[in-house]
Amino acid sequence: MIPLAYHRASSADEAIHLAGAPGARLLGGGTNLIDLMRKGVEQVSDLVDVTALSSSIEESDDGGLMIGAAARNSAVAAHPLVRSRYPLLSRAILAGASAQIRNMATVGGNLMQRTRCVYFNDAAGSRCNKRAPGSGCDARGGFNRYHAILGASPHCVATNPSDMSVALAALDARIHVSSASGTRIIALGDFHRLPGERPDIETVLEPSEIITAIEIPPSAVAANSTYRKVRDRASYAFALVSVAAGLTLRDGVVEDVRIGFGGVAPKPWRALRAEAALRGQPATESAFMAAAATELADAVPLSGNGFKIDLAQRTLAAVLTELSGDRR
């Protein structure tokens, strides 16, 4: 038995102090952490509940949004400014998990959630370099339908499961973090690490730091945006492939475009190559497919997920076609 203490932090400073103890972990909604503790994947002696910290969702001075890390996923998805200005974010959150879990989950916790790789989650019976560095990877030769085709390493092929983060990647969101020594801002694209030789280190967040807020800059392209998630059942399942995208056209030509992929990589995958290939191009399905192919050129399939390469390209083309609507 591992004894457990529960604390409820009333301020960021208190949370930083409490989280500094060995074996302490921050607790948001608990939808991932409580499950992993029960499975023996996470060993925790002190839980620091941070849901009483800022959960406000407010317009920032530059016309963007500032979202407190303790905001519940469902509150963000339902917020009028998110629905009208950043529909891809609202839809990405609504595509994730179930209503019950979205009511519990916090945006800070969502950024920190662990992979759903079945071997990572099986502490008793599977090898996993992310859970037990150096032990090996059972996914590579096992059931890897849900695993990565981009950004993986010989040590780990697990995917990041977050839908919300895919939209945040496309939106150039910024993560505000605090520690005893001050505050800093991390671009969402830099926040999650690729696995390399250390798949156990998933973000650039230092152990002494806590996430306090997520800032979303104003975005004209986000007004015409959406999120599409392709999965093994219609709802309440993790993504095989997902696409977050925003698009603006002028006279049938792509003026600006933002693209994120989910379900294909160890981190929310910003498709900068596809974006660059599309700017100034006519908004045609063939141009969309060609840009998608550029992004997927380096894709490396595993034994059970080669279908994702075609699926990612077609999903992106379908989403951009939808966003082109009558404006082509």
Binding site: Y6, G29, G30, D49, S74, Q100, N103
Partner: peptide
């Protein structure tokens, strides 16, 4: 709000 009681600690 509807939530899952299996993933909620009573303390929460």
């Amino acid at each position: 709000e509807r939530v899952l009681s299996c993933l909620t600690l009573a303390a929460q």
